[in-house]
Design a protein around this nucleic acid. Structure first.
Lengths: 246, 246
DNA sequence: CCAAAAGTGTTGCACTTACACCCATGA
DNA sequence: TCATGGGTGTAAGTGCAACACTTTTGG
């Protein structure tokens, strides 16, 4: 409290800040083939940070809600059917954008960040001409423009939490999936040692919202796996209850 | 935060929104005497919503960070030593503030909300002249201005989660406290049936970050209670680990 | 037949729950 | 000595980790 007192006094009669509000998306996807967690990056074509990678973002338009803006970015960059999206955090410290020239009454750049998880298989990147756009393995993300590395880190933390406590995995898996598919998804995001496969299995099945379709998936060698479907109705009563998948 | 050339060009008719950014605080406190969870409300003295209660808020000033603005509101309304504060959510849908006149190129009013928990005993309300300001029991909050009931509801949910998984209770308890004090705090926020007192006791003590000061608190009849202190060092290794107090 | 992938079972340990009971104080 | 609030103990049940084992497929 006390370190803020000084700031307060010096700002007593300072003018209100003028804002430009942008939305930046941390879009994750799981490359199930290679078991890697990916994040969508785009290349900048303007100053500042010309030719550096950054998170896909946009400025909010007149009459557009923040969430709509987030969906618009997504739709401009990828074509995807299944996704999960939620607001992440708002970054708005003065000086986070170099365009805020300190000399003038420069505008402030506020970033309301959103976090999304999309299905990798049917996410089509929209590469229109010059615009660089790519999935990057989260483990190998380069230096990003602005404070976007920080935003990404924040989103990564949120993703891991969400996965542990919410059924967002099912928004991004195919309609029917095997328990290994589900396990691989969790293992990829949370790290290899999050749980024994056998125990993960029994726990998930005991929860009772995975219904066996009776179908089998035969993929090369080995015993064919049962295909399950997420049963939203059976899950409903568990909503808000603390669920643990880990 | 950046503009993609193609999009910008193709949408000349959709102007960017112009923003005023405000910070609204959901400030909670626990009235330990009456076992009630309280929230701080202030009376509006301007249109719109003249003479209605609302959350304390302010517009962000030039050069001021969002968090600083949140601290400034707090400091203007109450004098308090111990508190916990974190960003809550950003509300920015068009139409959430009636001052956005639809006819003109009205500015948008964005609210970055913060959530705080302060120590009730030493929170001095600053009532300067006309300004209505009061603690309201969360269970009896009236109709608030703007979408502030929604923000409050959101903050209430966050408070309950935080309490279950983070040691924020200790930011708001006295330096030394009894286990009943702690239990009462939890019971007040989370509801009476969150845990048996005896089991709560043993769980908390087993976690190992409450150190017995050896002192006793004698409060009227009954056996005097041991006074404990939160041991931040002993807690450090548990940081990030999923803790359950409930 | 074997290797590979899916699926089942088992066992020990730790923790949770729901209580009953004991302890120290003021009146 | 009783009421009051603080504190301890315990037995049944539940959940989880670790690991061994069985089943079903392709080659």
């Amino acid at each position: 409290m006390h370190r803020h007192k000084k700031i307060t006094d010096s700002l007593k009669n300072s003018p209100l800040a003028d804002f430009k509000v942008g939305v930046d998306n941390v879009i994750f996807s799981v490359d199930t083939a290679q078991n890697r967690l990916m994040v969508l990056l785009v290349m900048r074509h303007d100053e500042p940070f010309l030719d550096q990678w950054c998170l896909p973002g946009t400025l909010v338009r007149h009459g557009e809600s923040l969430e709509d803006a987030a969906y618009r970015i997504l739709a401009e960059k990828i074509k995807v059917e299944n996704l999960y999206l939620e607001q992440l955090y708002t970054f708005g410290d003065p000086g986070r954008d170099p365009r805020e020239s300190p000399s003038s009454f420069g505008v402030r750049y506020l970033s309301v960040s959103y976090f999304a998880l999309v299905r990798f298989a049917d996410a089509q990147l929209i590469a229109n001409g010059v615009s660089g756009i790519a999935w990057y393995p989260v483990k190998q993300v380069p230096q990003l423009a602005f404070d976007h590395n920080e935003i990404l880190e924040y989103g990564y933390r949120r993703l891991r939490n969400k996965l542990e406590y919410s059924p967002i995995a099912f928004e991004v898996l195919p309609e029917v999936f095997t328990l290994s598919d589900l396990y691989q998804l969790y293992a990829t995001v949370l790290g290899e040692n999050f749980s024994d496969y056998s125990n993960f299995r029994t726990r998930l099945l005991k929860l009772g919202f995975l219904s066996d379709t009776g179908l089998k998936a035969s993929r090369g060698a080995g015993r064919p796996a049962s295909l399950y479907r997420f049963d939203a109705e059976a899950f409903a009563p568990l909503k808000d209850k603390p669920l643990v998948f880990i």
